[in-house]
């Protein structure tokens, strides 16, 4: 009798404990989950719906219409009749190539230098990380004023060339200045990630390679790269995913008046929304259609690249 009672009490206590755990779990995750449903699922679903709508406020009242594929036809129309989207696509590709071929390899090498503790590694680490701390607007002001005032003065003093004024408005010199600025301040974002990944490489592995006669470059290529491969793949994927969204600091530099030769897909898309902000939704549908179209192109390419890099990339063993 007593044993049955005891078992019942234990069973009830277990049930109560399980109910308490469930209640606690629900209370803790409920708000973030609801937020996720609204700000991820609903937002993206609404973005898809927006791509098939249009807004007309020519009468002063915003009228919503369903226009089917009209926005996508408009985008293709812009591609056919105007240069702006071709230029933006070309510029975005150029930034992607520079990111993949210059920024990522140099970031890895810089991180390797710090990781090995070579002279002034601590100082370089602070200096490389500093641009990540500084507001992009501050860097833009420093760079813009330097390029627009100090560089022309230098060119005139040293080379007696007075053709270096208004560099950022010049179609011939502007792209180079923009690319230098883009590359110069892009290193800091990834240095810590590479350092994180490198710090997990066992010391014995490096020592063993060097005892076997491997030089510094060979150690970097054969030991370090395979060890940080997952991090490297993540950063390559991030760069590729950023292909459509990358504004390349253009909005910070030019506001809504970036010259057409400088524009990227990311700038064009942000400009469509930022031009009127919440004041008028007239540009929302075309911006959403633009995003949907390019997500449909970029997402599969990015995911496939990730799969291939992880499948056929170097392995630690």
């Amino acid at each position: 009798m007593n044993q049955t009672l005891s078992l019942r009490v234990t069973s009830n206590a277990k049930k109560k404990s399980k109910a308490m755990r469930t209640l606690f779990y629900v209370c803790m995750v409920a708000i973030p989950v609801v937020q996720f449903v609204i700000f991820y699922i609903v937002v993206n679903f609404n973005s898809i719906l927006l791509a098939f709508k249009s807004y007309d406020n020519s009468t002063g009242v915003v009228i919503e219409n369903w226009i089917g594929w009209g926005n996508f036809e408009r985008i293709f129309q812009i591609f056919r009749s105007e240069n702006i989207l071709w230029i933006a696509t070309k510029n975005s590709l150029l930034y992607l190539v520079f990111n993949l071929c210059v920024v990522i390899p140099l970031s890895m090498l810089f991180a390797y230098y710090i990781y090995r503790g070579y002279p002034a590694a601590g100082f370089f680490k602070v200096m490389l990380f500093l641009p990540a701390v500084i507001c992009s607007m501050v860097l833009v002001i420093f760079f813009k004023e330097f390029v627009e005032t100090a560089i022309p003065e230098l060119a005139e003093r040293w080379f007696h060339d007075d053709g270096w004024y208004a560099i950022l408005s010049s179609e011939s010199k502007g792209p180079v200045a923009l690319m230098i600025f883009y590359v110069w301040f892009l290193f800091s974002g990834s240095i810590l990630l590479y350092l994180n990944a490198m710090s997990n490489i066992p010391k014995s592995q490096i020592e063993a390679a060097q005892i076997d006669g491997a030089g510094e470059f060979r150690t970097f290529w054969r030991i370090v790269i395979p060890a940080i491969w997952p991090t490297l793949v993540s950063l390559i994927i991030l760069a590729m995913a950023d292909f459509v969204a990358n504004q390349a600091n253009l909005f910070s530099i030019y506001g809504i008046f970036a010259p057409s030769w400088s524009q990227t897909l990311g700038y064009y898309q942000f400009f469509l929304v930022a031009r009127y902000g919440a004041d008028s939704p007239v540009n929302y549908p075309i911006a959403s259609a633009f995003g949907l179209l390019f997500t449909a192109i970029v997402a599969p390419i990015t995911l496939l690249t990730r799969h291939l890099l992880l499948r056929f990339g170097p392995r630690e063993d």
Partner: peptide, 14 residues
């Protein structure tokens, strides 16, 4: 890992 772009307008509307 899924890159989604161009939902700023929808964000603003919501």
């Amino acid at each position: 890992i899924l890159p989604i772009v161009g939902n700023t307008a929808s964000f603003l509307q919501i």
